[in-house]
């Protein structure tokens, strides 16, 4: 049984804002399937007494003092923007027409 369905791949593509043709989705599904199966071998080794790990280092409470550091200038901040206006990042329309 495949680890990921075509519907799940299509859904993920929507969430990731990727406009993928059907044959591309099918190829991705097969590739993701292999990745998921490979990763799944970990669960064969990890028994119930091994808690899931999100961080490889045994560290907690890494904090920073609430002290101001220099920021970029507006020019620097905007320098890589495709479009700017009045010191702001200019972005395409956010909502589609029907909303």
């Amino acid at each position: 049984m495949p680890a990921i369905t075509p519907e799940e791949v299509a859904h993920l593509a929507v969430l990731a804002r990727l406009d993928l043709p059907a044959e591309h989705l099918a190829r991705l599904r097969a590739e993701l399937d292999i990745i998921l199966e490979s990763v799944a071998t970990v669960s064969e080794v990890a028994a119930d007494d091994i808690p899931p790990t999100s961080h490889p280092l045994p560290l907690t409470n890494v904090f920073r003092a609430d002290v101001v550091q220099p920021s970029l200038t507006a020019e620097q901040a905007l320098s890589a923007a495709p479009a700017t206006e009045s010191g702001r990042f200019r972005v395409p329309r956010i909502l589609d027409d029907e909303s």
Partner: peptide, 25 residues
């Protein structure tokens, strides 16, 4: 005084995009 994850100021009403850094951008 500063943002959640970087040292940028949090002053209200500053000129646009003058309180940003690589982390918060």
């Amino acid at each position: 005084q500063t943002k959640m994850f970087c040292g940028c100021r949090t002053e209200f009403g500053a000129a646009p995009n003058t309180q940003t850094c690589p982390t918060c951008l």
